[in-house]
Design a protein around this nucleic acid. Sequence first.
DNA 1: GCGCAACTTCATCACTCTTTCATAAGTCCT
DNA 2: AGGACTTATGAAAGAGTGATGAAGTTGCGC
Lengths: 207, 207
Amino acid sequence: MVTLAETAQEGIELAERVGPDLVVLDLMLPDLPGEDVAREIRGRSDLPILILTAKASESDRLNGLALGADDYLVKPFSPRELVARVRAILRRTNGVDAPLVSELRLGGGNLVINSLTREVIVRGSVVDLTRNEYRLLEVLARYPGRVYSRLELINRVQGYDYEGYERTIDAHVKNLRKKIEVDARHPEFVETVFGSGYRMARPARAS
Amino acid sequence: MVTLAETAQEGIELAERVGPDLVVLDLMLPDLPGEDVAREIRGRSDLPILILTAKASESDRLNGLALGADDYLVKPFSPRELVARVRAILRRTNGVDAPLVSELRLGGGNLVINSLTREVIVRGSVVDLTRNEYRLLEVLARYPGRVYSRLELINRVQGYDYEGYERTIDAHVKNLRKKIEVDARHPEFVETVFGSGYRMARPARAS
DNA sequence: GCGCAACTTCATCACTCTTTCATAAGTCCT
DNA sequence: AGGACTTATGAAAGAGTGATGAAGTTGCGC
């Protein structure tokens, strides 16, 4: 899925909200310098960023990469090249998202995910997760409330090159729930969205 | 969000199914004349249409606008100009600048539909809708006040290939109302138009 | 190469949502 | 008001989707 933002403000909000695989950032924006967007996004996550710019000088280029961009494309460029570079970045990150912050807390501290140590603590006890279980949990936990289709989850957990049975993710969900839920029938964390996929339960909404 | 169709067939179907904010239509299509697409879309909805064409003559231009297009852009054109015109149309049709994150607000904020997360918030609480309930709500909410026949709703909600009982939509309306209305007998949002179908209540007009 | 852990697949069961139906309630027209 | 027609509603059957345990397969460390 491709989503488009036309201003820096929108871009930052959108990046946070939908959790894209990669951000293509044009430095020419109507409201803020694109550099600020890169800094902002990089400050909140490790989302891959590909910067588009008309500024070709060496110092600009270095500056962009210093901001944490993964790649840099100077206009004019061919669509073909853009696609190739996006592919390259996605291959590099292999669909596995880097952690947003080092420690995620959900359910009022009942679930703590430390992405540095890859340690998961449920209701005070450390839980051992397999690699896929951990990735699955991490992907879901990063944007609580957002619904992920099985295909999205497979891409992010098993990688874009995975070519197996889509329902394999069900098995991982099952195993993950067995480890972190009190009652798998009425999950506190990993919810099923009938006909769509799964999501992390969202904390009660304040309004 | 941007969605792309490569043929007239796809375009018409897609326009109907996803209900975009605006259609950018290239008259050069592999299957049908683009004019037919414009006519078809205009026949079914009030979607803004911006036509792209290589035909520059005065009569072509008039013809395009006669089809109900909102604007007309002759190739070659700059991306900048395209964006500017899209903005202009959206500003015109929405009263504000392009809504990027499609978040619909109705009833003075009592009903909020976020099409990105598929989340619906009624009077401050998140409401769980099934797929069909959600689609139904989304279709109606896109053009408050516009009356949709049961057939139109079925096409948009269940799909054009649906071949069931027309009144099934009544059941979905019933269930949707149960979830979002205070009193289903006197609905605040989904109104019945006797003999015709349903519509989303239009906000009281200030003047 | 063996053994173990993890991953994947599969068959079956359980559950949710959709659709249909019968009947009640409401609306419109004369 | 009465009759004809339209919509609302709850119940129940049916279709589709998810959960689960077990069996099969893969991959890795020893």
